[in-house]
Simulated scan of single mutants.
Amino acid sequence: MKKIAVVGCTGAVGMTMLQLLENTAYEVVCMASPRSAGKRLKVGDSEHLIEPFSVEGCATCDIVFLCVSGAFALEYGERLAQSSYVIDNSSAFRYADHVPLLVPPINGQRYAGEKLIANPNCSSAIALMVLGPLHHEYQLDSAIISTYQAASGAGQPAMEALRERAKAFTDYGDHNGAEHFAHNLAFNVIPQVDSFEDNGYTREEMKVVWELRKVLGEPDLAISTTAVRVPTLRSHAEALSLRFKQPIRSLARVRQLLSAAPGVEVVDAPEQGRYPMPMTSTYKHAVEVGRIRYNLIYKEHGLDLFISGDQLLRGAALNAFEIMQLIDD
């Protein structure tokens, strides 16, 4: 029986990771900070005793999931990888040339047995489930992406804060401050996710650029992104405007291609009110894709799409779980 450690088990991604590991054949070890050590953590029908994190404890495990900050991962990731396979959910190693950045249905074939593996940013992972099969068929030339990101991207406390702020909301102008976001998120949208870079884009926006290029193996791919925080709890949504090198002869072929893609669900009957939404994609393993249409500017070389995926599942824990399955294979 393989032994799995989840470091950062009490966070939103860590808890989702434990839900995926429930009822599997793995022995699961939960690790967290000293203040959580000794407590019991109930996930589904399972109860775990939380252990304090230690390098020695991780060394007894076959696979270690790091659901922690980038600074923590930078301090311990490579050391842990000397004895265990390490799947890191932070941004610490995503852009390192020697560390694979994997979305298994898209570039899992490139995995060559490395001990340290990076899990992509949530927006990137969700978008790539759709971009991968389209790029393979039509060769992506450029992408303009707007992301509408849920509170869960800022962690479990941010989700609870949004619920409380929504309950207490009275009118605009009241209580605009916020602990977890740049501004109060309740009944609001905030065109800032993460800090701003010198080029005027936020780091979250640049993560999408860097990660799509790396996963698709296209270092010069033209991408521009705008990331917006919206008052949804778990699922992100994204609007994709795509230009391809090969002409798209049929939207029916596009729908057929996406319907056959693993981890993708076509929800595209707008005349019936069916299209991707956080309301329907939350808790779902698949990324919903819909509003499939030709781009008015790029004509048959372009598509406009709308997608939605659960940030904690498809955007984080589920992708890490699928990386673990790659290792097992």
Rank of each mutant, 00 (worst) to 15 (best):
N176Q: 14
S36N: 14
V267A: 12
G57R: 14
V230N: 00
V68G: 03
N176S: 13
P231R: 07
L221I: 12
S224M: 07
G200N: 10
L80F: 11
G132H: 05
A161K: 08
P133T: 12
S241R: 15
S124P: 08
E238V: 04
H236G: 15
A222S: 12
D329V: 03
Q311G: 15
R253T: 15
D329P: 00
L80S: 08
I4E: 04
N107K: 13
H135Y: 10
F93S: 08
P100H: 11
L74D: 08
S124L: 12
L221S: 07
S259C: 11
I248P: 09
G113Y: 06
L296A: 13
Y148H: 11
S69G: 15
Q192M: 15
E51W: 03
G57M: 01
M206Q: 12
L140H: 06
A25V: 02
A269K: 04
L134W: 10
A118Q: 01
A127R: 00
A5V: 04
E56N: 05
S90C: 03
A127Q: 12
G57A: 15
A81F: 11
A227K: 09
Q82T: 09
G290F: 01
K42G: 00
L101G: 05
P219D: 08
D174E: 13
N188C: 03
F321P: 02
E265C: 11
I327W: 03
N295D: 15
D328H: 04
